[in-house]
Amino acid sequence: MEMLYLLLRQTMFFSIPLLIVALGGMFSERSGVTNIALEGIMVMGGFAGIYFINQLQSGMSGQLLLLLAIVIAVAGGVIFSLLHGYASINLKADQVISGTALNMFAPAFVIYLARMIQPSGIANVSFKNTFLISKVPVLGDIPVIGDIFFKNTYITTFVGFFILIVSAVVLYKTRFGMRLRACGEHPQAADSVGINVYKMRYIGVMISGALAGLGGLVLTIPISTEFKGAVNGYGFLALAVLIFGQWKPMRILWASLFFGFMQTISAAYSAIPFLLNLNIPSEFFKMTPYIATLIVLAFSSKSSKAPKAVGQPYDQGAR
């Protein structure tokens, strides 16, 4: 039983960053801007957050420091995403190329930056993990649920779920959300009723920058003791989650939990005698989420819920 709880807790370490980043991608794409720069933005946000912790950890620790680092990571992500916004909205550049450029730029830039600003001149930014919550008071005593969600956890898990709820409400229940979606479906129509498409798209890209930046920090905290300009493809994985989740918040949640759980199993199956004795190669577990994605895409491609105008620069003059 303890092992099952561990697996579910570990799943959170995979799923929460994927969830946060995929939700970020959702806001951008729903506004009509393809954002494959998620990987690069994660690197930027992760670096900003971890460097902040690195600098302040001698004087403070624990949840307050982590919350402040979250703010910094969000800010880092937003600023970096503005480059993508400027290129793809103002300059009407090819959004895939702009995103690719940012993905290639970010890792090199943060390593350069780390070398420049750290007195030791090294590229690795180390941090002390003082953020683990071994047990949440009261809630941790609830059987089963307490063991899964409220023991050996990080505050970022709750932040992730909070973002999910806010995202779902904002996207479907607010005027802003409706306008944002309109800009992604038919920007000309949105413009004709007085919505500023450029502004909405900028906001969409900035939200995606904020969440992807946060995702970079959330991914790194539980799994390492240092950061060195890489998030190992999790930004691209989040894109897959976004598509698998068909650009809808709740579906994105299930997709990220599914991806996360399969990845957890593929990594930890050796600790579970039952799975180990089945003699299934670990590659099988690793492949499963992707094969499932392909199958879902094959069946749903006709009725794909992708925003209609995603990837097309909006030109007001061409209306």
Binding site: E2, L219, I223, A230, A267, A268
Partner: peptide
């Protein structure tokens, strides 16, 4: 040769076991 959730999870699983 990378720090990934997969390697962290494998190690966490072993430690748990």
């Amino acid at each position: 040769f990378a720090d990934t959730p997969a390697s962290q999870t494998r190690a966490a699983g072993w430690y748990q076991a």
